[in-house]
């Protein structure tokens, strides 16, 4: 057990825990937008942590794990933004606790 393997294992454990939180958030939140919030944040940090953990524990994987991290960091927020806009435009009502709505009509005057 060298030092980098220990660091990698710790990062992997943190990432797995955030994955678990993402699943729980997806299940418990009341409407689509809140679900997307929980799911996107938790899985993005979970992927960062997990993949970086693998890259640190195995230095020969490091370059390719960096590419995976860059790809997920670019695509995951974009995907959730597009999905949030699509669900708003397709007429999904946000939950009753929503206070403010300044996005009426899809932002088109």
């Amino acid at each position: 057990m060298s030092a980098n393997v220990v660091i990698g294992d710790i990062l992997l454990a943190i990432g797995a825990f955030f994955y678990f939180l993402g699943g729980l958030g997806i299940l418990r939140m009341p409407d689509v937008y809140n679900r997307l919030q929980a799911g996107t944040k938790a899985t993005t940090l979970g992927t960062f942590s997990t993949v970086l953990g693998v890259g640190i524990a195995k230095p020969e994987f490091l370059l390719k794990t960096l590419i995976i991290i860059a790809f997920v960091a670019l695509t995951n927020p974009v995907g959730s933004s597009v999905l949030a806009r699509a669900s708003y435009l397709s007429g999904i009502k946000p939950c009753d606790c929503t206070k403010v709505d300044e996005y009426k009509g899809g932002g088109e005057e």
Partner: peptide, 22 residues
């Protein structure tokens, strides 16, 4: 609703990507 399902599926897919790396 279907956006719910797609959101959950997206989350699941990112998790499975991490799983493949592991």
């Amino acid at each position: 609703t279907s956006p719910d399902r797609v959101a959950a599926l997206d989350t699941m897919n990112v998790m499975l990507t991490g799983l493949i790396v592991v």
